[in-house]
Amino acid sequence: MHPKTSNMKCNATMLPLGESAVLVEFGGGIHPDTHRKVKAFTEYLDSHCLPGMIEYVSAFSSVTVFYDSLMVKQLHQDHVELRKEPSYRIISVILQKIVAELRTGDGQEARIVEIPVCYGGELGPDLAYVAEYNKLTVDEVIDIHSMGDYLVYMVGFAPGFPYLGGMSEKISTPRRQSPRMTISAGSVGIAGVQTGVYPIPTPGGWQLIGRTPLALFRPNENPPSLLQAGDRIRFYPISQQEYEEYKREPI
């Protein structure tokens, strides 16, 4: 676990992504400290209603706020300094104020989500290759992967797909030469220094080391994604039999 750094001040650059979105860039690349700023900002957005805002997308070092420019203009008619400005400037001024008052320590404790994985066999056809590539035994790969402490930096690419940070470089493996046409939902894979779980069947070139019986994408639930940006993840190994049982009767 990363110790909580005490109240960092935030600042960010506002960049227009067309006439209906502003990208709020915190800078600092892929880093837990940057993530804390992103998280503090999205927690504010989750609990406050911004007039004209439609939704936001958070990423490694940025949060993009989507808005309706017509609504933003209409809602700020009374604002003497801003009413003649284009909507992205109005939104930028509002967001800049919010960012200036953020403190990273204010956020909630990270949630820990445990994900059961049946490693190897049919469900993880590339496990042996990953071991061989890193000159490790299959069991060592499983140990290293399941002992890691992973941070969900962002969710994207596919519904419920977590971009995870924290995988040991000891098991990093390049993508497959020829991507598979379809990868089953629940597949746990490695691509370079990244690890991830496929929520829906997708074509892809990741090295598949196992599969989880957990559904990461739950279209009929709210939220529809099991994992949220800011969650911490731990994988734990289960047997094929446990996997089958879990599939039959999800907890």
């Binding site: 439609i54 939704e55 936001y56 989507f66 519904p159 929520p199 529809p224 994604s225 949220q228």
Partner: peptide
């Protein structure tokens, strides 16, 4: 479908 992009839902 708006409001769910943060969960990766297009």
């Amino acid at each position: 479908r708006y409001g769910y992009q943060k969960h990766g839902v297009i």
